[in-house]
């Protein structure tokens, strides 16, 4: 399947005059947003700020009321959009998976490559091999044969990341990938994402509530509030107590600990 050819100097992802409405209410309004290839943009904001809406609009789960989303210069609503969308993979928030669901971890990860494989073609050994590689990459290769629903929350998120990578995306969208996970699983998943980003050179849009991971994981941070961008800048400048306090309408302190800056609520 041919992949999109990047136009010279085009950003990997570009949004222009985008508005998304949900039940008649504007859930997201973004005049301009560009993300260069290989960069990681963290998106933060309180619940309802529009983080998940932004990601859902980019990957086509939500229809734009107006505006344009481009991937490497190609309009994602234009001709060939369904093929272009295959270059964008989404990892959703951890969800309850029925422990009896009849799908193995390997099958679930392979499903990330089904759209690119095409209709009426069995998955094939090549896709199975790639899915196994991705499972090894995220550290759960030994769980390939287990039913998906029997994995822990952290393992399921690793499987979700492996499924997204099996899609062979060029842009990876991560929607609060550590929510609902315990502290240890959160650290593991974030470490896994950082390692994959470096190895695969992916462009990443990361919606997160984990402010303390922003500096180590992201190049830039976008603050969203009520569906609108409030601030965008380098990740090292994002941890500002006044800005975060205003964003979350809470008392926020930023302290240094072991050479790292840490946000305290």
């Amino acid at each position: 399947m041919p992949r999109l050819v990047a136009m010279a100097n085009e950003p990997a992802l570009s949004l222009r005059d985008v508005t998304v409405k949900r039940r008649g209410r504007v859930a997201l309004r973004m005049d301009a947003l560009d993300l260069d290839k290989g960069r990681v943009l963290g998106v933060i904001g309180p619940n309802g700020a529009g983080k998940s809406t932004l990601l859902a609009a980019v990957c086509g789960l939500l229809r734009l009321s107006c505006g344009v989303v481009q991937l490497f210069g190609h309009d994602l609503a234009g001709p060939g959009a369904s093929q272009a969308r295959r270059d964008i993979a989404l990892v959703m928030q951890a969800q309850d998976v029925d422990p009896r669901l009849p799908i193995s971890v390997l099958e679930s990860v392979m499903s990330g490559g089904y759209a690119r494989r095409g209709w009426l073609r069995p998955p094939g050994r090549e896709l199975a091999r790639r899915a196994s590689e991705m499972l090894e990459l995220v550290g759960i290769g030994h769980l390939a044969g287990r039913p998906l629903g029997q994995l822990s929350g952290g393992e399921q998120q690793r499987a979700a990341i492996a499924r997204a990578l099996t899609q062979q995306p060029r842009v990876l969208l991560l929607d609060e990938p550590t929510s609902a996970l315990d502290w240890r699983a959160q650290r593991d998943i974030l470490g896994c994402i950082a390692s994959l980003r470096e190895r695969l050179g992916l462009t990443v849009l990361l919606a997160t509530h984990d402010l303390n991971s922003l500096e180590s994981l992201c190049h830039e941070v976008l603050c969203l509030k009520s569906g609108r961008p409030l601030w965008r800048g380098p990740a090292r400048e994002a941890l500002d107590a006044d800005r975060l306090g205003g964003l979350y309408r809470a008392e926020v302190a930023v302290v240094s600990h072991g050479g790292r800056r840490v946000v305290l609520f």
Partner: peptide, 23 residues
């Protein structure tokens, strides 16, 4: 038989299947 892989992806995690480009 013909659409097993698509059916499996949609029946087991429909939203993810849609995000990955499956109809």
């Amino acid at each position: 038989i013909a659409f097993f892989k698509e059916i499996q992806a949609v029946a087991c995690h429909r939203r993810i299947a849609r995000a990955s480009g499956l109809p």
